[in-house]
Amino acid sequence: MTDPTVPTALRATGLGRRFRSRWALRDCAFTVPAGKITALVGPNGAGKSTLFHLATGLLHPTTGELSVFGATPGSDEARARTAFLAQDKPLYPRFTVGDTLRFGRELNDDWDQAAAERIVRAGDIPFDTRIGTLSQGQATRVALAVAFGKRPELLLLDEPLADLDPLVRIEAMGLVMEEVAERGTTVVISSHILSELESVCDHVLLLKHGGVRLDGDVQRLCEDHVRFTGLADASTGDGLPAGLDRGTVVEATVTGRQLTAFVRGTAPTGDHWITETPSLEELLLAYLRSDDRPTEDTGRDGAAA
């Protein structure tokens, strides 16, 4: 599923992280292509935040390994190339905006003060304002300014749009896209708002119950799947046509006598089926809704760390 000619930003092999007796991530293997925007999708507790913490070295894996451009997460080399915006967008509330940018300058060798200032100015935020008095949207902008001032090659955004009102959401996303397009930054962005990801991301990584459920290029994934609807087959228990390989079915629902199914591969033959290539949002929803689980069932996960 991964194009070997594209350089890799993140590579995981056998990656697992356990919190006491609960596995937040288990036996994950995937690659994140460099220079692309990857959507990290999954229900709450699927291990998205854990993955970000492992990729930044804030956590160590329990099993397996993860590399950032070939380096160990948290090493000097990996830290210099990675910027991370955590879900709660932490900033020092007593610092002024100016102090916050100085923080970035003092703690990073390769710091782009002009870029950071430009992002702050574009939001009309005075530099002497204390962080604690900023609105959510302004704080997100300052946090993004710190992230971009670092000139990262890999930008990790954990739910950057949560808690933002729709206008600010569009503004923040626009800001990210603008900066990323200019520099060819690799981005991994997690979000619940699937429709907002569809228009921006090239690659998708879907986590569920601590495992990788779907991983690949967006366009290819959509083309590899088909959604078909039609009259449910009364002769089979599940309503699916008898000749269909059940292993390819991602999700199937029967409403009244109507069957809607997502399959990987080709649709069953017959002109009584309406077939369509699913959108990314439809496809992700189908995978999120489907009950089947990756290799080992670890029980229902609680909230992610």
């Binding site: 804030l58 000097d76 830290r79 910027a83 955590a86 932490p90 900033l91 970035g104 710190v146 670092k150």
Partner: peptide, 9 residues
């Protein structure tokens, strides 16, 4: 904020 501090250079 430790996440902010420890992901810098």
């Amino acid at each position: 904020t430790w996440k902010l501090a420890l992901t810098q250079g």
